[in-house]
Design a protein around this nucleic acid. Structure first.
Lengths: 335, 335
DNA sequence: TTGTAAGCGTTATCAG
DNA sequence: CTGATAACGCTTACAA
């Protein structure tokens, strides 16, 4: 078996169809005029040869690769994977294709990822984790790479920023606890302190202060099940035990609830009310049934993609604040 | 503000550094010889200009894009997202970059995804969901797109197939139930019946038959929490209630356990033993604590990437069978 | 509508 | 080690 040329080119198709390369090109470019006759000939030849337009070359010419780069850490986590799921789906529907770069949580690795996006001449990049520094953002913009920042707090020109109204949600959490008659509030959070997480914390503390309710705060590790467990042990052995705990993440809430029940034999919501955030699937499972706030995942994705489809020339800074609906379940009394 | 050229090219760098384009190219190609002096000049100019090699053009020349396409459905699911996480990470470490295509479960959408991979001249494609038909596989191979099929059963030349020893795992499940003294076994599965799921089912039934143990079987929907709940309702209202249930997926097991406990007030493992599959994070949570089989996710990813790094000329069919270790937890008596 | 020719940013080849 | 030159596969004026 002889080594054959790996890919079939428009040239080959043109030869077989008895037309010029440009005719082939036009056939595969929507909105170009080709006669029905040649189009048919080209299509037949292309099909027979298994021809597929080379998007690398097309991107080179058009200065538009169709690639959108997703920069994410902790992809195995429920919220992240659902967001990536929605994003890839909607990008595909918009005729784009997603490139996925996995970072650790460091800002440095985000910078590396963005450089990679530039190398592949991505049309845009959606940053879900980490905070790219100003110089990198400038570099991207100068290279024609549009940027969507999700739940990051820096504002830059020519960039779309999508945030949630974390403070408002936190305030609603306090209200819910107050209605349930909770007297001793608490909040658990990661040590990392990403912008949205810190906004929830600050909002919760402020709203509680407005009602003269004290708040105990614990920080530990990442927003994981294990962290939730550990902070439950810390919090529930304090002199005064909290009776209303806001977990800034559902994953934290799951770990917190499991140890509160198994190790401290507390009844939720009788002895202790719990509120989470994200509305991951597990929050709706019978064992947890957590009152929480729903991340508007599809809304985030839809807004990001809509902005990308828009005119590339718009260079104004745009900022979107989406609402996280409260989802009432059984981990809070009343409701 | 005037419209400036979007990207900076090697030409620009060469001009600024006072060298030829080829010198620039060599500087950025590992293993090419450039004098320390020119290299320094080039690097300085590149840095000043913010130059990044255009991988679209490079891929065009080299016939090697560095892109590996991941074809996946149900990305929001724990097992899938963890696999994608491992895959993207290890691909990056190997100097490749992942493109992600989200499919529904249909074989047709896998075909569409593979065509997209061809258009971007991906070096390879890793298929995690759905089964591409023979003609599409042939098309890919002819176009120089290497293929890794994970948990699919078709065998093709020039393709790497990675499977688990599902039958062996199922046999171990039967042994565990027998040791726990279970007399009435059951199995719950999706209706889709992907190869690996069907292998678990067949293996379980065969091993049970060898011990003269009867097996009740239920099928429903996808392998989700909700399906697990529904099949629990069906199974636990049967005349003879099973006392050992193999759920072909941990997600099914979670749903099954929750309704067995809450709706039927059964004690696990006293009244009922449960075994799952995948070892998703939730299986280790206190509320579930499921005895299960660990998907060797890192092993799968490592093998896939190692094969991709290998010589592209090898056209033999390769098939790998990985072992899924049993993870003993509290959902089975004894152990 | 069609074909010809130029050019996109690379890398590989081949003299020097 | 260096620089000119020819590809790679495509799109897009421009001319027919």
């Amino acid at each position: 078996m002889t080594i054959q040329k790996a890919f079939v080119s428009a040239q080959d198709v043109a030869a077989r169809a008895g037309v010029s390369r440009s005719a082939v090109s036009r056939t595969f470019t929507p909105g170009k005029s080709v006669s029905a006759e040649t189009r048919a000939k080209v299509l037949a030849a292309a099909d027979a040869l298994g021809y597929h337009v080379n998007h690398l070359a097309r991107g080179l010419m058009r200065n538009e690769s169709g690639i959108v780069c997703l920069i994410v850490s902790d992809l195995g986590t429920p919220y992240r994977s659902n967001l990536v799921n929605a994003l890839t789906q909607q990008l595909q529907d918009a005729g784009k294709i997603a490139m996925l770069i996995n970072t650790d949580r460091s800002d440095e690795s985000v910078g590396l990822a963005l450089r990679q996006a530039i190398r592949y001449r991505a049309d845009a990049s959606i940053v879900v984790s980490g905070m790219p520094d100003k110089s990198i953002v400038k570099l991207c913009l100068r290279n024609g790479l549009r940027l969507v920042l999700i739940n990051r707090d820096d504002e830059h020109d020519g960039t779309l920023r999508i945030n949630l109204d974390d403070a408002k949600a936190a305030e609603n959490a306090v209200t819910a606890f107050a209605r349930a008659g909770c007297k001793h509030l608490a909040l658990i959070n990661s040590t990392a302190g990403t912008p949205s997480l810190m906004a929830r914390e600050a909002g919760f503390i402020a709203a509680a202060a407005a009602r003269d309710l004290p708040v105990m705060v614990e920080h530990h590790g990442h927003t994981s099940y294990a962290s939730g467990r550990l902070m439950a042990q810390r919090l529930l052995t304090r002199p005064t035990r909290p009776d209303g705990v806001f977990c800034v993440t559902d994953l934290l809430a799951c770990g917190f609830m499991d140890t509160a029940r198994r190790e401290f034999h507390l009844d939720i919501p009788k002895d202790l009310c719990v509120i989470g955030f994200d509305d991951i699937e597990q929050a709706s499972w019978i064992s947890y049934n957590i009152t929480t706030f729903a991340q508007p995942i599809d809304g985030i994705a839809a807004n990001a993609v809509a902005w990308l489809r828009g005119d590339a020339e718009q260079t104004e800074r745009t900022s979107l604040r989406l609402h996280a609906d409260m989802v009432w379940r059984g981990s809070v009394r009343g409701g």
